[in-house]
Every structure is written in structure tokens, then in C-alpha cells.
Design a protein around this nucleic acid. Structure first.
Lengths: 372, 372
DNA sequence: AGCAAGAGGTCAAAGGTCGC
DNA sequence: CGCGACCTTTGACCTCTTGC
């Protein structure tokens, strides 16, 4: 109370520091000086004024006055551990994983643009979600559904191929992951893309056509797959305001499924899955800290993961729908769909999948055209 | 007297704290770390010196050494009443949730014992898992499968009714949750029960009969549901050494599904789900801290949640199998199974479900006998 | 009643952060 | 790149509860 004045520079003090009543400025200055073992030299007569306004003019005299005022260098402790707090969290190694996924996503977005440019105009995108004001899209036809599924499958393969965790696997395991995850990955993609749509009974397919519940029911969606996608996936995603990073992480976690049918190297897949899981959890806790929504966000990663059971169930139903639709000749099932969605086994020389896996990415546009 | 030295940092100790001889610094550090559930990360090789002067340089290593020295996180008590504090006992509230679930589980185990006592001897149980040395059980017949499913369904309803979060819901929502979750809950129960079986191609049904893959295939398990349960659920559970608390929490999270078909009061269900999710995550971080398996356990709750997508898919396949089996007259489907597993809608006056929901628990034994 | 242990809590003075 | 206003963590020093 009485001693509110810094004994070094007469600024307002913030208490005792290193043995002297001082301000935060002199406190910090003294610590930095001692820590870095600075040896300053006065360019004048060693008697410079050290006051609030002039204290930065001569470091030698300021340090000297710190000592005179009673600051002890042995009160300076060793460096401590970092205390990750304020805004910009330091970029860590784990960021790399996320960055890699975002890069893979971007790549696929670009590929997609080049592939579907023949169909009308491209929808405006925002972080992989179509923009909320994009409503002039045309409604999807049965043909659009087939085409968009095919497109998503092709992009799905390219996406996977761009991930090192995937390409290190044996080709048989690569095929197993692709087959086991295709349907769910498609549903996840469609759901995320549809987050920003204004109409809450509609989803946006991969070729930017819109499919409403009602429409879907007229073209064979007897089990209400579209309805389920909206109520069980899109709406929860909306409510929790899911972002791109969370989407790509969830996608990777879903994809690297160590218990998928026919997998051999479970360990590598599991390792990859858990690495992505850790990234997601890190990112979620970081986000929670930033927004200070402590209680609400502390289990955000859990909430995200809890989208997956529904997703899995819906994907399975979708597969059954496609099987049924084919049975009734409603939909054109190409060989990629047969292999990835319907899990039909083909003689290996005719497998489109195997061809895709071993071909470089540049050929994919051609491949799409061949298929059509 | 001999032990005046802090077992963590070699500073002067002030006695035993949380199970280890330690100084006030390490005491305070440990308490703060556990209370705030900090997750530190070593920036080096996890082998930093933890001595008087360097103890603040790496919190990860310091905390690790606290645990190694014998400090127990369960010795940390709840925050005491601070006069001006507003927060109540949110810490104990979560313990209560888990306790409540364990109580519900125990209750069902007891009910089960009384219900199946007519069939041979009871298997020795350990935390809801049959003991590893229980191998003299008889193999399950087709009839056993039907009976065990029925039993599980009855117990499932009683389990749910014993949870306040469930009984506060409207009856229609109660029915929706039961219908939507029955199959998956059954699979989860069977899987957990089978964790300790020695034979890795066998599961243990609810009436303590054993069902092997091969056997299952001869009685209509064309889709390999048993194989999938083992490889996708039981084995992962084994590998991560899942315990009872994790099981009951996961079960509750699975059950309180806010996006289940026909649900009205999504919010209440979601609130319940997230409360259980928080409990699970809390418990997992606690366990990670205790065992100091930092890296491996930090995403344990995520790993547990990732059992659910497979579970959901298997449950769905199980339902289809049962439908098929009934079609071929292979299995006796009673009305409870029709309502809960096959989701068939009955005129409400004949609904067994509705009867179960409104009857007190004491009548369940009679009910089981009526059904047979 | 008294007292030693070991829980809990407090807050001055260390530390670190990061826009400028 | 250092400065310094502002925030977090530490630990010496208390109080409170429990069991003997």
C-alpha cells in the first residue's frame, strides 16, 4: 500500500520481485538479463536516469539500479516447463497428421472439380461443406445417384492412396480397408457436405445435385436411408458445429478399421487409427480451452466418435438398398460399385480396384470417362 | 527420521502425501495435476531429471515420478466447501453415475441367477465376465440360443427400468430406446461375458451355454455373426483389458441413443448419454494417470467408443439372421423378441413391452415362466 | 483432551505468454 | 527481438479432520 512505487524506475510496482519492490517491466528485464547472462555496457557516465520513460535508454544502468535496489540474481530460478495456454497453441508434431489429412481432402476436392465440371456449374464450397445459400442446384435423378456414388468411390480410392499410412500396407490389406469402409465413407462425405444446406429434408450428393427425403423414397429408398442420414448424422453434426478438421480426422479414424474383414496387418491399421484418434482428441481439448467451454467441450471427441455407430448402421442399410435396387434393375451398378459396395469377389485380372490401386493418380480422369 | 527425503525430487520431505514420502512442492503439484486432469507431454525422452532444482523443468516426468514413488490419485479427495464457491459436488456426481450403473448391473446379475437356476449349475462369474477356467459348460442348442436371447431381453428391460435417466422418460420414448438398442445391447453383453473364455472361437451365452463359430454356422449363422463378435468385439476387449466399469459405462452410452428411431425427447436422452460419456472419460484419464501409461491410455475412452460401430453393424446383421431363421422356422420367436429385436408393431393392448414397462420388477420371474 | 498425520486451502512471488 | 501487461504455477505455511 505504502510502497506502490518501483524502487528502480518509479513506475507503479506490482509487489516484491527478486528482493526489491518493482514493476513488471523491471522484473522481466532483470530475469531476462540474468538468464541470458547479458553484459551491458553504458555508453555514458554510468549514471543515466532510470525512470519510467527513460528506463529503456541504458540497459547497463537499469541493471545496475536493479541490483542496487536489492534484486538478487539467485532468486532467478531455472527455466520451467512450458504452460501451453494463450491463443496460438504451439504447433506440434501431431499437427502434421491433421495437416496431411487436410491436404488429402483438398486434393480430392480439386480432383472432384475437374471430374464433374461437365455437369452444370460447380457449387460454392466452404471447408468441404456446400455453402448455405446454394439452393439453385438441380434435384438429383436416379442417374445422378449412380454417378455420384461412382465418383465418390473413385475419389475415395485416390484419397486413400495419398495417405502414407495406407500406402505402406500390403495391397491385400489396402483392398480390405477400401471394401470395408467404402459405404460408410460415402455416407460420411455426403453428410458433411450437407451440413450448411438450408432445407432440412435434403442432402447434397457428390456431384452437387440435391436429394430430398421424398424424392429418395420414390427412387427406391424404402428404408429411409436419406431420412436417417439427415436425422442421425447431419443434424447432430450441425448441432455440434463440426468443422473440417474434425471431419477429416473422423474420416481417417473410420477408415483405418483394424477389425475390418480379411485384414492381415491389424497392428499397422490400429496404430494409424490411434494416431488419428490422438490428433482428434488433442485438437478437441485445444478447442475447448480456447473457447473456455470447459464442461461442454471436454468430451467433444467422444461426441464425434458417437456419430460412427449410426453411420455404420446407415451404410449397411444403404448397401442393402443398392443390392435391392439392382435386383429390380433400378440402378446401374458398375464394377467398382460391385467390388467396393456390394463386396463381390471378381477374378483378380478383372478387378477395377486392383487397377486403381496400382495406377498413378493422373489417370483417374480417364478412368472415370471409361466407366461411363 | 530416516526418511526426510522426498522420494520424488530429493528435497526435504514433510511426511507422507498421497502414499509417498514427499515434499510440499510435489504434494501440491500432484494434487493440482490430478484435480485439473492435466495431461502433460514430455518434450524430451521421458527421462528428465526430477531433482530439487530441475523438478519444474518437465511436468510430465515429475508426475510420472510421483506415481512411480507411490502416489495414488484416489487419495486426492473432493474439493472441500469453499465459502463463496458456487459449484456443488459435480465431482461426486460423476462417481455416483458409475456407481449407479454398477448397481444396476449387479441387480441384473442377481435376477439372472434366480431366473436361470433351473438350468444346470451357474457359471462362476468375475465382474460380469465368466471366469477363464469355466469350460465344463455344455454347448448351446438352438433352443438355448432362443432362451438366452429371451432372458437377455427381459433383463435388459429391468436394467433400463432401474435407471432414473430412463424412468423419467415418457413411455413412448422408453419403448423407442428399448427397441432401438436391444440387439446391440445383447451383443455387447455376450461379448463382455466371453472375454475370459480360454477358447478363442467361442462365446458364452446369457444362460451360460457355449456357442462356437462352427456350431453357430450349423444353426443358421450364415453371416458369421459369432465370428464377427469374437474378432471385432471380444478380441479388442481382451487386448485392451476392458473392465466392468468401462463395460457398464459403454453400455449406458450405447443405450441412451438420442437419434434412435421414433424418439421424441432427444434432449433428455442426449443429456444422459453425455453424462455417462463424461464419467467414462474421467474414469479413463484417472486410470491412465494411475498406471502412468500416458501415451497408450490417453485415448482409452476413444478406443472403447470405437467398439460401437462394429457392434452396431453386427447387431444389425444379427437381426437379419433372426428374421431369416424365423422365416425358415429354425427358431422360436416369442412376442418379446418380435417387438424388441424385429421391431414389429403390435396393437398396444397385446404389447409385452408395455406390460413389462409398467409392471414392478418382482413380477419378472413369473413373466419369464409364462413365456416359456 | 491432546496430538500427530495427512487430507485440504491460501497467496506472494516465482514462472511463462505473446501482441506490440 | 526485447518489452511488459497479463496470466499460470509453485510451494511455504496455514487449517481441518481423524484415529489413537
Amino acid at each position: 500500500m505504502v510502497d506502490e512505487i518501483c524502487h528502480i524506475c518509479n513506475d507503479k510496482s506490482t509487489g516484491k520481485h527478486y528482493g526489491a519492490i518493482s514493476c513488471d517491466g523491471c522484473k522481466g528485464f532483470f530475469r531476462r538479463s540474468i538468464r541470458k547472462r547479458y553484459h551491458y555496457q553504458c555508453r555514458f557516465e554510468q549514471n543515466c536516469d532510470v525512470t519510467r520513460n527513460k528506463r529503456n535508454a541504458c540497459r547497463a544502468c537499469r541493471l545496475q539500479k536493479c541490483v542496487k535496489a536489492g534484486m538478487k540474481s539467485n532468486a532467478i530460478q531455472n527455466e520451467r516447463d512450458a504452460i501451453g495456454k494463450r491463443k496460438k497453441a504451439s504447433a506440434t508434431e501431431k499437427e502434421d497428421l491433421i495437416d496431411q489429412l487436410v491436404a488429402a481432402e483438398t486434393l480430392c476436392q480439386q480432383l472432384r472439380s475437374s471430374v464433374i465440371k461437365n455437369t452444370s456449374s460447380l457449387a460454392p464450397y466452404d471447408c468441404g461443406k456446400v455453402k448455405w445459400n446454394y439452393e439453385d442446384a438441380r434435384a438429383a435423378t436416379l442417374d445422378d445417384i449412380g454417378k455420384s456414388i461412382h465418383q465418390q468411390l473413385v475419389l475415395f480410392i485416390e484419397w486413400a492412396k495419398s495417405l502414407p499410412q495406407f500406402s505402406f500396407l500390403a495391397q491385400a490389406d489396402q483392398a480390405a480397408l477400401l471394401k470395408g469402409g467404402a459405404a460408410a465413407m460415402m455416407v460420411l462425405g455426403v453428410a458433411y457436405r450437407s451440413i450448411c444446406l438450408k432445407m432440412d429434408n435434403t442432402i447434397c450428393l457428390a456431384n452437387d445435385t440435391l436429394l430430398s427425403k421424398e424424392q429418395a423414397e420414390t427412387v427406391g429408398d424404402i428404408n429411409g436411408v436419406v431420412t436417417r442420414i439427415i436425422s442421425e448424422i447431419v443434424n447432430p453434426m450441425r448441432r455440434m458445429n463440426m468443422d473440417l478438421i474434425e471431419y477429416v480426422a473422423l474420416k481417417a479414424i473410420l477408415f483405418f478399421n483394424p477389425v475390418v474383414r480379411e485384414i492381415n496387418d491389424q497392428n499397422s491399421v490400429e496404430t494409424a487409427r490411434f494416431a488419428f484418434l490422438r490428433s482428434l482428441q488433442r485438437r478437441c481439448t485445444d478447442k475447448a480451452l480456447e473457447n473456455m467451454e470447459d464442461e461442454m467441450l471436454e468430451c467433444r471427441s467422444g461426441k464425434l466418435l458417437l456419430l460412427l455407430p449410426s453411420l455404420q448402421a446407415i451404410a449397411q442399410q444403404l448397401v442393402e438398398d443398392v443390392q435391392l435396387a439392382r435386383l429390380f434393375g433400378l440402378v446401374n451398378v458398375d464394377s467398382l460399385m460391385e467390388e467396393l459396395i456390394l463386396n463381390e469377389i471378381k477374378p483378380s485380372e478383372t478387378q477395377v480396384l486392383q487397377t486403381s490401386l496400382s495406377s498413378p493418380m493422373s489417370t483417374i480422369k480417364a478412368e472415370v470417362e471409361v466407366e461411363e
